[in-house]
Write a protein that binds this DNA or RNA. Structure first.
Lengths: 158, 158
DNA sequence: TTGTGCGTTCAGTATTGACTAAACAGACGG
DNA sequence: CCGTCTGTTTAGTCAATACTGAACGCACAA
C-alpha cells in the first residue's frame, strides 16, 4: 500500500517539526528512509509536492548534519541523495556537540559568578557533572556504532 | 559584578532558543540557577523586564518539565519558583520520552511497510536499535542520578 | 559561441509562534 | 458584602522563518 509510506513520511515531518526542525526536512528524511535507491532533487520535489528550492535547502541541511549523503552516477549531472551509511554515528556526534556546548556554557557561567553561595556552586557543579557523564555515555555508544558500521563495509558503488 | 549574572541569563536564553524553546524560558532558567532564594512572578518579570503573562506561561512550562518547582511561604499568597531539586532526573526522563517516541514511530513505520527490501528493513532495525540502546544508557544514568539525589535530602523547608 | 539541464539563491509571501497588555477569575482580609 | 492582591487567560501585535517561484550561475554538449 502506498498510503503507508505516505503516512510514515508525514509522521517524520511532524516529528522533526516537534524538534524545531523544518517539516520538509523531516519528510525528506522519511522519504529517503523508505527508498532503497537514491533520489534526485526533482524526484523528491515531485514526490513531496514542494518547491525545488525547499528541497535544495533542506537536503543540504540534512547533508551537513551527516544524515543523508550526495551520490552521483557517471554520465549523469544530477545529484542524488540517500540515507548516509554512517547516519547514526553522525547523529550521535551532533548530540554530543550539543551537550558539550551546554556544559561549556554552564562552566563559563559558574566561573563568571563573583562569589556564589555554596548551594549555587554545588548546583552548577552537579549540572556540569551530568553533562560530562552524558558525554561519556554518548561517546561509548558512538564507539560501538562506529565499530559495527566498520564491519558492514559500505556499499559505495553507484 | 552584576553584569556576569546578566550575561549568564542571556546566554541561557540564547541556548534554549537554539533548541526551539522560548527565549524567556531560558532566561527564566538562568535567573533561577543563579538565585539561591525562590523568586515570585513579579520579581522575575521585573528582573527580566518582560510581561507578567510571559513569566506565568513560561514558568508553568518549566514547571511541567520538572525543571523548576513552585513553593509557598506561609502567610504569603504569592507563588515562588526555584530550581527543582530533582531537575536532573526530570530532564533525563524527558529526554527518554523523546527517544522512546522516535523509536515508536520508526517501529510503526517499519511495521506498516508492505514488503520492504531487506536493505530498508535492516536500516530501520538498526535505527530502532540505536534508540533502544540510547534508552538503556539514559536509564542507567537516571538510576545513578536518582540514587545520588536521594542521599542529599531535600531542603523542603521554606 | 548558444542552448540545455542542472543546483542554488533570493525577493516576496504566508504562517507560525513568542510576547505584550489588559481583562479576567479566584482567594483572602476587611 | 467589597476591595485588594494574586496568577491565568486571551485578543492583538510583531518578529522570525518556512516556503514558493523565478531569476541566476555554472557546467557540459554541440
Amino acid at each position: 500500500m502506498q498510503g503507508a509510506t505516505n503516512a510514515f513520511i508525514e509522521t517524520m515531518g511532524r516529528h522533526f517539526e516537534e524538534e524545531g526542525i523544518p517539516r520538509i526536512a523531516g519528510r525528506l528524511f522519511g522519504l529517503l528512509m523508505v527508498n532503497e535507491d537514491p533520489c534526485s532533487l526533482d524526484e523528491m520535489a515531485d514526490r513531496l509536492q514542494v518547491s525545488k528550492g525547499s528541497i535544495s535547502t533542506n537536503s543540504r541541511l540534512l547533508e551537513q548534519w551527516g544524515v543523508i549523503e550526495r551520490v552521483n552516477r557517471p554520465g549523469d549531472r544530477r545529484d542524488y541523495y540517500r540515507i548516509a551509511p554512517d547516519m547514526e554515528s553522525r547523529m550521535l556526534e551532533r548530540q554530543m556537540e550539543h551537550v558539550a556546548r551546554l556544559r561549556e556554557r554552564l562552566r563559563d557561567g559558574l566561573d563568571s559568578l563573583p562569589a556564589p553561595p555554596e548551594g549555587i556552586a554545588e548546583r552548577f557543579r552537579s549540572a556540569i557533572d551530568l553533562q560530562d557523564r552524558t558525554l561519556e555515555l554518548l561517546g561509548e555508544a558512538l564507539g560501538r556504532v562506529r565499530q559495527r558500521g566498520a564491519g558492514a563495509g559500505g556499499r559505495d558503488a553507484y
